[in-house]
């Protein structure tokens, strides 16, 4: 008969963890961040399960390297773990906050590494090694189409500035040099483009006017 180890090291029983996870499932992202601020590991795990897929996809798109992308996501989530007490939900959604942290980290890394993708506009990521649920895939597919539809409606120069900056990690001055246009022009393109994209996405959300493209 082995010694009663559980009396010495009181680990929580797996069934408790399960019920805890089920309990968290119906909480909002913002409520989870509040729990994380109190050191709740299960809440951090749940946040990762909700946002981690998109976070990694974003980091990989910017960094084009799985190790660096993992670093960016890990550091961002540990930033969430450490600074969740500073998050306030009145304006920013928790998922937006986390993705902002991931993106900032990814851009800092890509600039430090000087890993320059040949052309960030290339769509070369169709061979997804995914283990995601069909539900997640459907939502991501929807969101992707919605944003792509918005981007397609922008003037080419504005779309180019936004995509090279956000997915390519290029700064405004780098873009001015690369595209051979004045810095002020790049700034104006980004501002006008983001403002227009905001309108397009809001219209789509409010009126339900967006229709999925036939998959091809």
């Amino acid at each position: 008969m082995p010694a009663p180890i559980h009396a010495v090291v009181p680990l929580p029983d797996p069934p408790d963890l399960w019920s805890m996870r089920r309990h968290l499932a119906h909480l909002s992202d913002e409520a989870l961040v509040a729990l994380v601020a109190r050191g709740d590991e299960a809440a951090l795990a749940e946040l990762y399960d909700r946002v981690g897929r998109v976070a990694y996809g974003l980091a990989f798109r910017v960094l084009r390297d799985d190790r660096l992308a993992e670093d960016a996501v890990q550091e961002a989530f540990l930033g969430v773990w450490r600074t969740a007490a500073g998050f306030r939900a009145e304006r920013a959604k928790a998922s937006t906050w986390i993705l902002t942290l991931v993106h900032r980290r990814a851009v800092d890394l890509v600039r430090r590494e000087e890993r320059r993708r040949a052309d960030p506009l290339d769509e070369a990521t169709s061979d997804l090694a995914t283990s995601e649920s069909a539900e997640d895939a459907a939502w991501l597919g929807f969101e992707r189409e919605r944003v792509q539809a918005g981007l397609r409606q922008l003037p080419h120069a504005q779309r180019e500035a936004i995509e090279l900056a956000y997915y390519g990690g290029f700064s405004q001055s780098e873009l001015a040099e690369r595209l051979g246009v004045p810095l002020g022009t790049i700034k104006s393109r980004m501002f006008a483009g983001l403002t227009r994209l905001r309108e397009l996405l809001q219209d789509g959300a409010e009126e339900g006017s967006w229709k999925p493209q036939s998959t091809s």
Binding site: A59, R61, A92, S95, T96, T100, A129, R146, V147
Partner: peptide, 16 residues
Amino acid sequence: WEVTGALAAAADGPAP
């Protein structure tokens, strides 16, 4: 930031 959050979701990268 809401717009860039949408851009993030549309990034189309692989799963971790």
